[in-house]
């Protein structure tokens, strides 16, 4: 019943500036994806194009083989819960939470009112409050309620934990997994809070400067990096021939992040006194996309 959402060679320009270059992506059914990228990488633009809320200049976006643009069947299966803002177009967003819930019940064919009410209560939201009067955390909670209660086969959340404190964030991951284990629907979650969420994502999509840098199983991706440290000569010898992503130096000590699995490094290190440690998803992301991202072989 649920089909594949696919983007193929997407290009998006704002005036002369190209914000998405040749982006191709397949969203497989039943997977929780994490979409991570720096501010301005193009995450919201990409998600917006995937759900026919924004136009694109080249390439295609299809759902079940058919383009999503103005496609009623496709849009009935998609939900893109955007970040809410106190400002809407030219003024304050004086719509209330219950207005959004009403609109959602009209537009999402599988809307689950009981679940929405349950979540509203769990978050302690006052449905009569105007959006412009909500705190950032409460606005995030509203987007979470809208996304989860939509029961859409493909549900996309843009920065759902922005503004939530750590307790609320942990609660969100629990709620998300409760829903996922029950329904098995597809989720795409874009977030800046990478390390916490890493365990929840089965696959990770990294968007950097408008291009897809990686789409992989999260654990496999993380396991493909190592951090090697020790004396400079030893480290250089061990990492020779591998892609170096990041270098730290302190006196004669050198620490290097490489695109190579720890097992590979350990074999190369045989005998040498170097420390080989894992690289977290967050660090791997920073190394790949940070200012000093350079690609050289040591």
């Amino acid at each position: 019943m649920e089909q594949t959402l696919q983007a193929s060679h997407l290009v998006k320009r704002y005036g002369k500036k190209e914000v998405l270059h040749d982006v191709s992506l397949t969203i497989e059914p039943g997977v929780i994806y994490g979409l991570i990228g720096r501010n301005g990488a193009g995450k919201t633009t990409l998600l917006s194009i995937l759900t026919a809320q924004n136009t694109h200049d080249a390439g295609t976006v299809t759902y079940g083989g058919q383009p999503v643009w103005e496609n009623e069947k496709a849009l009935a299966d998609l939900c893109f819960s955007r970040e809410l803002s106190g400002q809407i177009l030219f003024g304050q967003n004086t719509y209330k939470v219950k207005d959004y819930l009403l609109a959602a019940s009209m537009y999402y064919p599988r809307w689950d009112k009981a679940y929405a009410d349950q979540l509203v209560q769990r978050f302690g939201l006052d449905v009569k409050k105007k959006i412009c009067k909500l705190s950032k955390g409460m606005m995030s909670m509203v987007t979470i309620v809208l996304a989860l209660a939509s029961r859409a086969p493909i549900t996309i959340l843009d920065e759902p934990v922005a503004g939530l404190d750590v307790v609320a964030r942990e609660d969100f991951y629990k709620i998300l997994l409760d829903d996922y284990t029950e329904t098995g629907r597809t989720f795409v979650i874009s977030t800046h809070i990478i390390e916490e969420a890493a365990n929840v994502f089965e696959k990770v999509i990294i968007l950097n400067n408008g291009q897809i840098a990686a789409v992989e199983n999260t654990e496999d991706f993380v396991a493909s990096f190592s951090f090697v440290s020790g004396r400079e000569e030893d480290v250089d010898a061990v990492t020779a021939g591998h892609e170096v992503l990041h270098t730290e130096r302190m006196g004669r000590q050198k620490g290097v992040a490489v695109r190579a699995a720890r097992a590979v490094m350990e074999r190369a290190a045989a005998g040498r006194d170097v420390d080989i440690s894992p690289v977290s998803l967050q660090k791997a992301f920073v190394y790949l996309t940070g200012e000093e991202a350079h690609h050289e072989t040591a």
């Binding site: 284990t181 929840v200 089965e202 999260t218």
Partner: peptide, 8 residues
């Protein structure tokens, strides 16, 4: 998954 907040 639910107990440890990890992906199933």
């Amino acid at each position: 998954a639910r107990a440890y907040s990890i992906n199933p």
